[in-house]
Design a protein around this nucleic acid. Structure first.
Length: 533
DNA sequence: GTTAGGG
DNA sequence: CCCTAAC
């Protein structure tokens, strides 16, 4: 009897976990209806509550439970339809569930807890003290499949290997489970509403099924502890924080609306799992920390309000470079630079005042539409066969390394503006790749891009990646795509060369030791090189 | 420090 | 272009 009580405690605690995992739970326990029943109790209690739009990843603050990190709710909830097939027993709403038939593991596996522990250890490399087979099995399954979606599949653990069972076996096991105890109620048409209510649980986190008499939550603690240990702690990246903050701000708005809507339905407070803890001004930037259940940890992560970094027009450099009368802009550029009076970075004032100063500062003010049109016409007039000509124009202006950087809170620096790749840069890159090979980015940077100090090797690599992508993508009409993207289109011949090079590189790279290339290929390279030299 | 890959 | 892991 004591065993039963213990079992029930654990189940209740488990089911009292965030409701976002309810659907998951209920599906997962198709073969063992323990969670099922309790969940149905929950569902019954929630019957009065109107349906709400679901808000994913909204978990109650109380329970940074292990289910939170099992995966996104959306991922798990898609299997809610399984509920229909599972044959729920909603009628069991008041009495204790009959755990007597839970003893036999029905279909998942036949391992004892001890064996499960061993498997767990083999999977996660550590011991566990959890005695909940359901939990153990799920953990192992998730660990072995790297997925939270074990609910839709049944598993057998054999010799530390995971064997997926087909759906047919699942239904078999359900037969075994439910046939003994035919559901009393009319469960077939229930699930629709039940599922909806389970969804709704997300926005009603406070409504819990908790029995004060069964306050021993050791099992739950165990679960949480194990779960925490199973997943490595990872400091959230700045981007994560930023983007999450963005989402949260939206979500909180929606939540407030929900709160207002529900105020008449006897609901207790809607406690969000995100609580702003304090505001700390930091370097002129307001940093808000909050309590977040990141990966199941109740830790505080900084929460910054994200300011969209606006980007200047992409093809500005190209436009400037291709402007035949571009020299006329120098005066205005200088003036603008003076007006902006930005701090000179590492003693490059002299360069700033040179004619080839960064135009990013001023392009909003000084670039007009007529110029743009003129430049496009110039480009098309030059055509693709006059690369050398383009290069002459560009190389005289591309040698500025006057990159505007902004310090990041972390101490690093970050370039402030996007700098469009010019055609000549692209050609240099292609040439460099053909000469030194894709992957030797630092070489290419040092030798072919010596004068382009604002292009890092990473930039080269990224650009090459994009070129590759562009070369493989179907080439459409240049005019249309140019207008839509705003970026300078890559001429087809260059894309062709990129593709050829990529093809070549794929063959060359595996045989890294051979410096010399096969005759035909080498000839090909030479042709490309002469084309750009 | 470089490179590869994801964001 | 940024960031990170991995080398």
């Amino acid at each position: 009897m004591l065993q039963k009580v213990k079992e029930e405690q654990r189940l209740r605690l488990a089911c009292g976990s965030p409701y976002c995992s309810s659907a998951y739970l209920i599906v997962d326990s198709q073969c063992c209806d323990q969670h099922d029943k309790l969940l149905h109790i929950d569902a019954k209690l929630q019957c009065e509550i109107p349906l709400q739009e679901t808000v994913p990843s909204l978990a109650p603050s109380l329970s940074e439970s292990h289910f939170n990190q099992s995966g996104s709710f959306g991922e798990c909830s898609h299997s809610s339809d399984k509920l229909v097939a599972g044959g729920s027993t909603l009628s069991v709403v008041t009495t204790k569930p009959d755990f007597s038939k839970l003893k036999g593991e029905i279909c998942l596996d036949n391992l004892s807890i001890k064996e499960l522990h061993e498997t767990f250890k083999a999977t996660f490399g550590r011991e566990t003290t959890v005695k909940d087979k359901q939990w153990l099995k799920r953990r192992i399954s998730m660990g072995l499949t790297n997925s939270c979606d074990v609910s839709v599949t049944s598993f057998i653990i054999k010799d530390n290997k995971l064997v997926k069972k087909g759906n047919g076996e699942i239904s078999n096991c359900m037969d075994g489970s439910y046939a003994e105890d035919p559901p009393i109620g009319n469960q077939k048409d229930l699930p629709t509403s039940l599922v909806s209510q389970l969804d709704y649980h997300q926005v009603v986190p406070e409504k819990r099924l908790e029995n004060p008499n069964l306050d021993d939550n050791s099992g739950s603690d165990d679960h949480q502890t194990e779960q925490r240990a199973a997943k490595r702690a990872r400091k959230p990246t700045k981007r994560y924080i930023e983007e999450l903050s963005e989402v949260e701000s939206k979500e909180s708005n929606g939540r407030l609306m929900n709160l207002a809507k529900n105020s008449g339905h006897g609901l207790i407070s809607l406690k969000s799992h995100v609580r702003l803890v304090r505001n700390v001004p930091l370097g002129g930037r307001t940093v808000v920390t909050r309590l977040d259940s990141l990966g199941g940890y109740g830790i505080q992560v900084p929460c910054v309000s994200r300011v969209r970094r606006s980007r200047p027009r992409k093809n500005f450099m190209a436009l400037l470079k291709f402007n035949p009368s571009g020299m006329g802009m120098e005066a205005t550029v200088k003036k603008a630079l003076g007006d902006h009076s930005f701090p000179p970075d590492d003693g490059k004032e002299s360069r700033v005042l040179k004619a080839s100063s960064t135009p990013e500062h001023v392009h909003h003010q000084f670039i007009g539409v007529p110029e743009k049109d003129k430049q496009f016409s110039v480009m098309s007039a030059i055509g693709l066969g006059h690369n050398t000509e383009l290069k002459c124009i560009n190389s005289s202006r591309d040698s500025d390394d006057n990159v505007v950087t902004v310090p990041t809170p972390k101490g690093g620096i970050r370039r402030k503006h996007h700098r469009a790749w010019t055609l000549s840069e692209v050609m240099k890159l292609v040439e460099g790749v053909s000469r030194y090979g894709a992957g030797r980015w630092s070489e290419i940077k040092r030798l072919a891009f010596a004068s382009y100090s604002y292009r890092t090797s990473v930039d080269l690599k990224d650009k090459w990646r994009n070129l590759l992508k562009a070369s493989l993508a179907p080439q459409d009409n240049g005019m249309n795509s140019r207008k839509s993207t705003g970026a300078m289109p890559i001429p087809a011949p260059i894309l062709l060369k990129v593709r050829e090079l990529a093809e070549m590189q794929a063959q060359v790279l595996p045989n890294l030791s051979s410096t010399k290339i096969a005759g035909s290929t080498r000839k090909n390279v030479h042709e490309k090189q002469t084309g750009f030299l």
